[in-house]
Design a protein around this nucleic acid. Structure first.
Lengths: 342, 342
DNA sequence: GTGAAAGCGCTAACAT
DNA sequence: ATGTTAGCGCTTTCAC
């Protein structure tokens, strides 16, 4: 059971024989309070074990200094770097974070957004669930004047800023790289096309094929469940193809890694028989043999930019109010795709 | 800017010509309110765009229905499964979560705990930073009657429940397995011994050696920075050993994977020259070639148990008030350690 | 530079 | 089954 005796500013006021208002001001380092008085107040607060009641404060101020973050999943290297970035900027600016996962479900996404709204977050940073098809469930936030910023998995719209990488360009470069290595039959392991990031990578893939004068072959595009914990399934599908492809571009590193290990187990050489390019620059991309060519995805930076953009908006700063901010990605060429020129 | 006009229960009360108290009860589905009235209230609330003000509610109830979670790092498969487990149980019981990372620093851990305390969390779930040496900075919570539960990285103590796996036993089994595969010169890649989990694994390793009549050789134990992103460093240290070891037991999968790929790159065969066992059952353990023998670490379950224990405590349920709850681990034998009997 | 007083929006005794 | 009333602890306007 909690002690029912919480120390309040009234207790401190009584102790020091001053008013609660002065204590409140002193605690918040209001300039109108004498240094001496301020010191006394802080001392007493420490001595008496005072802890601010944030609820009372928030209730009164009608502001929470809290930013809500809604993401599809916590369990990826990318996500945790994004959050690290957000946290860094938010903490510096004196904001706290509430983080929640939608687990790739619009329904849970809606529920989370509502909870956050009820918690009166000052603003929201959102990366959409893969089955989110529109952003109607965010409209009420905008109407209430709560700033909203999308990052990574976004739906572009005139009302809120989006922070993204150029997935089209990245997919294009990845595919182009494979083509330049001599690949002509390139499988694409795609993610759900409802998600902006996967759609972009897929389109980039198609465009690169076209630019190299190759015909797009739908049978070479796979749409597995990228979250599937059973790796190898994708690889087996690919191995069953006849003729075998000579290149694979996957929309994430996990499935690329699964492909590589399964292919090699079956005696297929990577990169010589099949060259592989992944996406994300996950930790495992450097550990796997051969090291995986992949697209570096600057999570930390994306998080920092998103948070900074939101906080600027909260402070009504000029903010260059760009509608879409594109973060630079980078194709990291490693052994899994490096071939001798044929 | 936010609309200054928030809809309150008074607005609803006026609209329906009933009292605010009734509205409050209706909204919370208090049984004493007529179904009919309740329906009217809910309808009006929806129609008028009412949203509960959680701060007012928390302030009044002196309870937040929020659980704080403090963890060292968000970015591991294990951590995200733990959080998934916590979230599942917490949500079912109507609790919200605040998550914060200590980034392996006691200092940040302290700050986070204070913030959570100020946010009046009902209870706290904590996995300690690796440089945390005592739990003095949690004492004030206990004095204030805020229940506290440690999980995974714990310091055992009489006052709070700890949820752990038996790291000693797991380390013992891992080492014993290597010994049974014929290994006699086994390197242990350890984590910081200040952390309970790594200390346990290390002790288990030593005990197994002793039980097999082998002398413990301190020069075979490495203490690298397990968070180091430059894999291969550990492996190079091992490769420089003369004679080469014939087995490696690492305290996590990442470093095991790094070792395997570096060893093979240098032409050392895994498992025949060197057998490898990791720890965590990370996703990459199944992707790497050969598949990594590892200790399965039941994160989801640990999270569920931790949350349930805390919530029981919050509800003053019997709770079997065990001081330490041990979750079952499992050694998963895969190819990286399977040798022909010599 | 400090105090008095009102009120943020909600809940829960107590009363009816 | 519903209403009255009194706060929860804080901030802030206005007054001095």
């Amino acid at each position: 059971m909690k002690d029912s005796k919480e120390v309040t500013i009234y207790d401190i006021a009584k102790e020091l024989d001053i008013s609660a208002a002065t204590v409140s001001r002193g605690l918040n380092d209001h300039p109108a309070i004498k240094k001496e008085t301020r010191r006394k107040i802080h001392d007493a607060a420490r001595r008496m074990g005072y802890q601010q009641n944030i609820f009372a404060s928030n209730l009164r101020k009608r502001k929470t200094n809290t930013i809500g973050v809604v993401i599809p999943h916590l369990n990826s290297y990318f996500t945790s770097t994004v959050i690290a970035g957000i946290e860094k900027v938010a903490n510096q600016a004196g904001y706290n974070l509430i983080i929640s996962q939608s687990l790739e479900s619009v329904k849970k996404e809606k529920a989370n957004v509502n909870t956050m709204f009820n918690s009166r977050v000052d603003g929201l940073l959102v990366s959409l669930a893969s089955d989110t098809e529109d952003i109607d469930h965010f409209q009420f936030l905008l109407q209430k004047g709560i700033p909203l910023i999308f990052f990574d998995r976004v739906i572009e719209n005139p009302e809120c800023t989006c922070i993204v990488i150029n997935n089209f360009q990245a997919g294009y470069e990845a595919t182009k790289h494979l083509l330049e290595q001599g690949c002509r039959r390139i499988v694409h392991v795609a993610g759900s096309l409802r998600s902006s990031v996967y759609e972009g990578r897929y389109s980039g893939y198609k465009q690169a094929l076209t630019d190299f004068g190759l015909e797009f072959d739908p049978s070479l595009v796979l749409f597995p469940d990228l979250r599937d914990t059973e790796p190898g399934k994708i690889a087996r599908t690919i191995l069953a193809m006849n003729p075998l492809p000579d290149g694979i571009f996957t929309a994430n590193d996990t499935s690329a890694a699964a492909c590589i290990s399964e292919l090699r187990r079956t005696g297929v050489s990577v990169p010589d028989d099949v060259a592989v390019v992944g996406f994300n620059n996950d930790l495992l991309s450097r550990v796997i043999e051969p090291a995986l060519t992949t697209v570096h995805y600057p999570g930390q930076e994306m998080g920092e930019v998103a948070a900074r953009t939101l906080i600027n908006k909260l402070n009504n700063l000029p903010n260059d109010s760009l509608n879409t901010i594109v973060i630079q990605h980078e194709l990291l060429v490693r052994d899994s795709s490096k071939r001798q020129k044929k």
